[in-house]
Design a protein around this nucleic acid. Structure first.
Lengths: 202, 202
DNA sequence: CGACACATGTAACACGTTACATGATTTG
DNA sequence: CAAATCATGTAACGTGTTACATGTGTCG
């Protein structure tokens, strides 16, 4: 639903034509999420079908302007006042993958976690690199915020992966305590130390 | 792609029938992501079409067992060794929403942020409640990990929302510094204090 | 007996992606 | 002139959701 509402929100500001909607959407999100032009038109036609959008007069060059109907304005306004659903969380491929991995026989979960960790750290590095570029121009607040959101999300992912690793190690130690290599140093409750490794990149 | 691969991973353990795939999937993720039974069958038929799954002998009660082909096993094995793509990040409705909100005229961004913050804190509360239940039974490691992942993600979201709020406040103060209510107390770099509010719930 | 869990499917629809087709305008 | 950008669409396909149809077994 993000595209539908995104287009609705853009049209709430002023009438636009299809190509422009794409430019605006990509521009304001710093090109983070490329928007296929084909989908703009299919989405608009669905919005027309649902009575939220109608065609306006064409511009001189023939490009087709679209504007919101009253129902469309109402829907757009409601989008701003309604929080994003956090009731039934979206399926998270990584979480599903690890949930299945820890319950599956013959899967080296630690290896899965470590490969993912490397990948996620790589993404984090990329985002921080982009961020240093975005921070140069203090006008583009929205791109900075989008990048921050990506950084926050990946950091949380890495923290979770570390957390998983520790849980696995503890579970393994409990099941097979033949030689407790780490004699449980007062059990540090949770992962407090590992975040230092995040700093390597910055 | 998560369902497809999830089913593939389950069938890699042993042959199963459709209904059982649903039970296993939901069981191992603690019922966090309900899986529609219809989709199990359509996904299986696509996997059959792609030569990754074939029908096995039926059981006595008539239920249809499916097993992986060699290509299916190869695909499943590769899923475990390949990290989840973090190159082109999935579209995040909340991030898109706020990116559009800060660039749109006439939108009360602070209100949007605060409403979302309340919603996210509510979700966090729900997750921590569920978590205390999950921690009671130390066998169900996978459900605990899934819940941890949700908690980490929502916490990151709330931190980001606070971050956005502060950025907005700072930007507003720079634009309209008529009466600087907070005379910039040495500029505390970033949001260090606000996490205390997270503790209210736990 | 009636409700509920088990078990298998189909159909219609919504959304997203990719690729293709077409033409005007701008710019090196 | 050739290539890139602007501009509008259509078609095919993959995936996910919802709803419907159908039948068996079990348990209160």
């Amino acid at each position: 639903m993000s595209i539908r509402h995104g287009i609705l929100a853009l049209l709430a500001e002023r009438p636009m034509y299809g190509y422009q909607l794409r430019l605006e959407f990509e521009g304001r999100t710093g090109g983070t999420w490329p928007l296929n032009i084909g989908q703009v038109y299919t989405t608009i036609s669905r919005l027309e079908r649902d009575g939220l959008v109608r065609q306006d007069s064409r511009r001189e060059d023939g490009s087709v302007l679209y504007r919101l109907t009253e129902a469309g304005h109402a829907e757009a306004a409601q989008w701003w006042t309604t929080p994003v659903e956090r009731g039934a969380p979206a399926r998270d491929e990584l979480a599903i993958k690890l949930a299945l991995a820890v319950t599956a026989p013959g899967v080296d979960v630690t290896a899965v976690v470590q490969r993912q960790r490397a990948e996620s750290l790589c993404a984090l590095q990329e985002y921080t690199r982009l961020k240093s570029r975005a921070d140069d121009d203090p006008d583009d607040l929205s791109w900075q915020l989008v990048l921050d959101s990506l950084v926050f999300a990946v950091e949380a992912e890495v923290r979770w992966l570390d957390h998983v690793e520790q849980r696995l190690a503890r579970a393994a130690a409990r099941e097979r305590p033949d030689r407790p290599r780490t004699p449980a140093p007062a059990d540090p409750q949770d992962e407090p130390a590992d975040l230092a490794r995040l700093g390597e990149l910055r």
